Simulated assay, not measured.
Amino acid sequence: MNLSDMLGYADIQQLSRIADVYRCECNGHSKNDLIQSILSTVSRNDVFEAQISSMKLEDLRFLNSLLFEARNSFSLEDLLARVQQSRFGGEAEVQVEPEPQPKKKKTKKKAEAVDTTLTPREMIAKFKHHGWLFNGFSGPSRYLFQVPIDLKARFRASLARRFATELLYTDEPPVYRDEQMLIHDDITHLLHYCRHNEVQLTADGSMYKRFVVQILELVGVQEELPAKGEWRFGYGRHFNHYPNRISFLYDYCYSAKYITETQTVISVTGSGEERLRGRQAGEAEQVYRYWLKLYKGPITNLLSLVHWINALAIEWVTVESLRAVLVPFIKPYYYDDANTILEKRIMTMMVHLGLLRVGEHSQHGAVVKMTKAGTAVVSGLNIEDPGALALQ
């Protein structure tokens, strides 16, 4: 539902709170007057932009977590978790000095910062008072929350304009890398190798090193094996034994039930045999969705970050300026800091998936741009439809 519909279902108490936030001048006892005044005020771009400009970073992170979800309803528990995930620790956790020494003013400011930090429930109440969240109105939906569909679109458009002003766009670099279709070919190569070789497993379930080396010689993107004794950190089942891309390919084939593991060897299943006979329709979307599923645990807002890259990298843009915009929205994960997550876990994997191309500009360094196929996949289009965007 849109904002006007949700206001129509809201009670007069919530309408009065929203009207107070926007300083609407109207008859506070008339539900119709309240609704018309709120809609008139919120529809003004200067009011809407001022509200966004006044939002703190953790408010923006919380809002960002809701903007690209396919589902429309959220439970209270889900929203509380999202508020917690929007607090990365540094700016939200302010310590007060136990013994205020010479710098008493600084201590006072710190104390004020602690007092003004909203609890997760207060954050949700704040969004309700702004008319950005509404409860359901009947049955089980009474316990669910929704963001008005038209406000979602306005938030996305407004933030996109705000982010774009901070980006540096360039002309096409003389050299760039584009891996479209390579991952599909390499799924075939991996299955073909496992079909025609007895690939043995170690006691921990990973392939012996010699098999990984031989697979690396077949695939289209070369990677280095983890060095002996090297500390490895990654996402997936055997990331500590395989390079990142091979690890993802293996996990996808295992999840798709193309291969199965016994205690000692890998076998290609009937589904894997069928995949060897030809790539199935919609595989690009399936691989993309599996990547989101595998990586969204460590990167809780991965979906929104991918959508922002899709929206902001429609032309060649420098990685440095993109980093400045997106890193504040990325929560570190153990030994992965925000920069590492953006470059290695997100952008590099988007290149491997054929969603993004990366180049080297002579003046501005590393630059990226979405592929047409990547834009189609992220936007939810079927790239194999005759009417869908063509591959570049």
Score class of each variant (00 low, 15 high):
103 K>H: 14
103 K>T: 09
106 K>S: 10
106 K>Q: 13
107 T>W: 03
109 K>D: 11
111 A>C: 04
112 E>T: 07
113 A>G: 02
116 T>F: 12
116 T>K: 14
117 T>G: 01
117 T>K: 14
119 T>N: 03
119 T>R: 10
122 E>I: 06
123 M>S: 10
126 K>L: 10
127 F>A: 09
130 H>N: 14
130 H>E: 13
133 L>G: 03
136 G>I: 02
136 G>E: 03
137 F>Q: 07
138 S>M: 01
138 S>A: 12
140 P>V: 11
143 Y>G: 02
145 F>H: 11
148 P>C: 09
150 D>K: 08
150 D>V: 03
151 L>Y: 10
152 K>R: 15
153 A>V: 11
153 A>K: 14
154 R>H: 08
154 R>Y: 06
158 S>H: 06
158 S>N: 06
158 S>R: 07
159 L>D: 02
161 R>M: 08
163 F>D: 05
165 T>I: 05
165 T>D: 12
168 L>K: 12
168 L>M: 08
168 L>S: 10
168 L>R: 09
169 Y>C: 02
170 T>V: 08
173 P>F: 03
173 P>H: 06
174 P>Y: 07
174 P>A: 13
175 V>P: 00
175 V>A: 12
177 R>Q: 14
177 R>A: 14
178 D>K: 04
179 E>H: 14
179 E>K: 13
180 Q>M: 11
180 Q>K: 04
181 M>Y: 12
183 I>L: 10
183 I>W: 03
184 H>C: 11
190 L>E: 04
190 L>T: 03
191 L>E: 05
